[in-house]
Design a binder for these strands. Structure first.
Lengths: 342, 342
DNA sequence: TAATTTGGCTCAAACGATTACATAACAAAG
DNA sequence: CTTTGTTATGTAATCGTTTGAGCCAAATTA
C-alpha cells in the first residue's frame, strides 16, 4: 500500500541514500543510476512522505500564506497562485487567515510556524506592511516574501513584490482627465493600508501634473467596503452645486460599486452625469451596471512570483540577490462606468 | 529555542510517554500528574511537532478540503469554517482545489493524500456528488465527510451534511406565489450539480401544491454564472407577451445578478415589472440594485459541522453512528428584488 | 492471605525520510 | 604502478513523536 524510499531502493538495486539524492536533484549521481531510480519511482508510484522529510530535514517542505483580507476573490487568487507553485516544487501550503487587529495574532502565527515547521511565509497586505511583524520574523530568522503596495525601495533588501498602485491611480486619473473631467473626487480605503496612500498620491500627482489644484474636500476618507462607497458618494454628491464633481474614483471596486449604488439612489445617471472608477478588477466589476472601469491587477501571477521568490530563498542559495524585488503595475481597463462604449 | 516532549517530561519529572498521554487526553493518568505535566507544557510553551506526530502516529493530524467551485465566497467560507475547527483540535488543513473535469484529478488527489498522509477529507459539491470518486475513497478506506444538496438518504450511512435546497426553493417559490405571481420562470445552474435538480424540484413542487401547472418553457437550462443569468433572462423575456412572466428565480445569486443586468438592458423595472430572486446569499447580493431576495445558507456553520463530524470519525470511535447525517435548510431572505420594501 | 486484575507509568522500537561521515570506484598525474 | 583527487555510492545516527510491550504497586477477588 504505502511505498517508502526503501522499496524504491530495493527495486532499483541501490541504497536509499542514492534514491534520496535522485529525488532531491543532488549532484554526483550517474545518469544511468538516475534513470534506473526514476524508473523504479515511477513503477511504484512513490511519493516521498512529507512528514518524514520535514522531520528529518533542516528546512521543511511547507510554506505559509498569511492574510487578513476581506476580499474573497483576492484571497482565492493568492492561494491558487502560491498553490500552483507549491505543487510544482513538492511543497505543502498552510493557509493562515488572521486578524491583524487581534492582539493574539502574532502568537498564533508563531505557534503555527512552530507546529508546522514552516520554511517560509508569503505575506499579503495589510500584514506585509506591519513593521512590528516583520521585525518579529527577522528576529526569528524566518524567511518571508512580502507583497505590498509601493514603487520599490532601494534601501530595503528584503524580498518584496511591489504593486505599483501609484502608477495605476495616476493612469486612471489621466484617463478621466483626458475625458474632460476637472473635478474628480476620490473615496479612500482604509487609512492604515499603504495602498490607500499610494493610490491617493497617484491621483494627486496626476492632477498636479495637469495643473489642477488638489482640493481636500474632494477626498473622502473611508474604508475598503461597499458601505463606505455608498456613504462616501452620498456625502460627496449631496450638494454638488458647490463642488461640481463629474467623476468619482473609488479606492477599490467595492467602493466603486457602493458609489454606483448611491448614484442610483440619488438618481444620477452613470456615466452620463457622473463617471465612476474602481480598482483591482474584481470579478464583480464586470457584473455591475454599468460595468466598472478599473485597474487590473494580476494577482495570480503576482502570487506565483512571490512563491517562486520564497523558494529561491529557502533552498538553493544561487542568484538570490538578483531579482529580489519586482514591481507589478496594474493596468487600466476601460469599461462603461467612465465612458459610453462604442 | 525549540521545545520537545522530552524537555517537558524532564521538567515535569515524568517519562515522555506520560506527557504524550496528557497531550492526547488518553486515560490512565492521575489528575495530579496531569496537572504537573500541563503546567510544564505551559511554562515551556510546548507545541507538539506536527511532522513527528504524523510520522509516528497511525492517523495523521491533517485533513484535506477538496473543492471545485468557482464561487470565491463559498470557498472562503468553507475554508474558514473548517480551519476554525482544525485550530481547536490541533489539526492542519490542506486545501485542494481541483477541476473535476480534469482526468488527472483523481490521481492528483491520491498523490496529495499519500504525500500528506491525510486523516480525512471534507468534500464539497459538485465533487461530493461524484460516485466514482466516493467509490475510490471507499476502496482506499479513506475517511470523508460530504457536503451535498439533498434531503437526507436513509439508505446511505456515510457521513453527510445535506443542504436542503429543495425546501429553500420551495420557500422562495411560495414567497413569490404569495405576492401574486403566477408565471414564475426558473434559470437553472449546471445540469450536473445536484443542487440544480433539487432547487428545480422545490420550485416545481411549490407550483404543483398551489395548483399551478409547470410549464417547461419557463425553465431555462444554464449554468451557475452571471453570463448564464444574462442570456437566460434575455431568452425568457425576449417575447414576454406570450409567456407573461412576472418573476424569475435564479439558480443562484450570480444568475440572479445576471438576470438583473439583463432586465436593465431590456429596460424592465425591478421589482415593479419583474421580481427576481437568487440563492445562497453571497455578499454581493446586498450590493446589487435592487438588493436580491435570496436564500441564506450558513456555509461557515455547515463547514464547521463537517469538520467536527470528520474528527469524530477519525479519532475516538464513540457515538459515531448518531448524528452522522444532518440537514441544513437555507432560509428565505426577502430584500428589494422581489417586492418593494416598506 | 495469596492470587489476580487494574491503574499508572517507563522503556525501547518504530515511523520514513535527511544528514554527516565513511568508503568504493575511477580517472589523471607523478 | 602508486599517489592524489574527484565522483559516485553506502552506512549509521538523527529528527520528535506514537506505539506496544512490560513493570510495579495498589486495588480487587477468591
Amino acid at each position: 500500500m504505502k511505498v517508502t524510499i526503501n522499496d524504491v531502493a530495493k527495486l532499483a538495486g541501490v541504497s536509499m541514500k542514492t534514491v534520496s539524492r535522485v529525488i532531491n536533484n543532488e549532484p554526483s549521481v550517474r545518469k544511468k543510476t538516475h534513470d534506473i531510480v526514476m524508473a523504479a519511482v515511477k513503477e511504484l508510484n512513490y511519493q516521498p512522505n512529507l512528514a518524514a522529510r520535514n522531520l528529518a530535514g533542516t528546512s521543511s517542505y511547507a510554506i505559509g500564506l498569511v492574510y487578513d483580507n476581506p476580499n474573497a476573490y483576492y484571497v482565492i487568487d493568492m492561494q491558487n497562485g502560491v498553490l500552483s507553485r507549491c505543487r510544482k516544487e513538492g511543497y505543502e501550503l498552510v493557509i493562515h487567515p488572521c486578524s491583524y487587529a487581534d492582539s493574539e495574532m502574532e502568537n498564533e502565527l508563531k505557534t503555527m510556524i512552530q507546529r508546522s515547521r514552516i520554511a517560509g511565509l508569503v505575506l499579503t497586505p495589510p500584514l506585509s506592511e506591519q513593521q512590528a511583524l516583520i521585525d518579529e520574523l527577522d528576529s526569528m530568522n524566518m524567511h518571508y516574501v512580502r507583497i505590498l503596495s509601493g514603487r520599490g525601495d532601494d534601501s530595503d533588501n528584503s524580498p518584496c513584490i511591489y504593486v505599483n498602485d501609484y502608477a495605476a491611480a495616476y493612469e486612471i486619473t489621466q484617463h478621466l482627465l483626458s475625458l474632460g473631467h476637472k473635478n474628480i473626487a476620490f473615496i479612500c480605503g482604509d487609512e492604515e493600508h499603504k495602498s490607500t496612500s499610494e493610490r491617493l498620491a497617484g491621483y494627486q500627482q496626476a492632477l498636479a501634473d495637469n495643473g489642477i489644484k488638489n482640493r481636500e474636500e474632494l477626498v473622502y476618507r473611508g474604508e475598503y467596503s461597499f458601505e463606505s462607497g455608498v456613504s462616501g458618494a452620498k456625502e460627496l454628491l449631496k450638494d454638488n452645486n458647490a463642488l461640481q464633481i463629474t467623476a468619482v474614483m473609488g479606492g477599490n471596486d467595492e467602493i466603486a460599486a457602493g458609489a454606483l449604488f448611491a448614484a442610483r439612489l440619488m438618481d444620477i445617471s452613470i456615466p452620463n452625469e457622473l463617471a465612476i472608477t474602481g480598482f483591482e478588477d474584481s470579478p464583480f466589476s464586470k457584473q455591475t451596471w454599468p460595468k466598472l472601469t478599473t485597474a487590473h491587477q494580476d494577482n495570480d501571477i503576482i502570487s506565483q512570483h512571490a512563491a517562486r521568490l520564497l523558494f529561491s530563498k529557502t533552498r538553493g542559495a544561487r542568484n538570490q540577490d538578483k531579482d529580489i524585488q519586482r514591481i507589478f503595475t496594474p493596468s487600466l481597463v476601460v469599461r462603461d462606468s467612465s465612458q459610453i462604449q462604442g
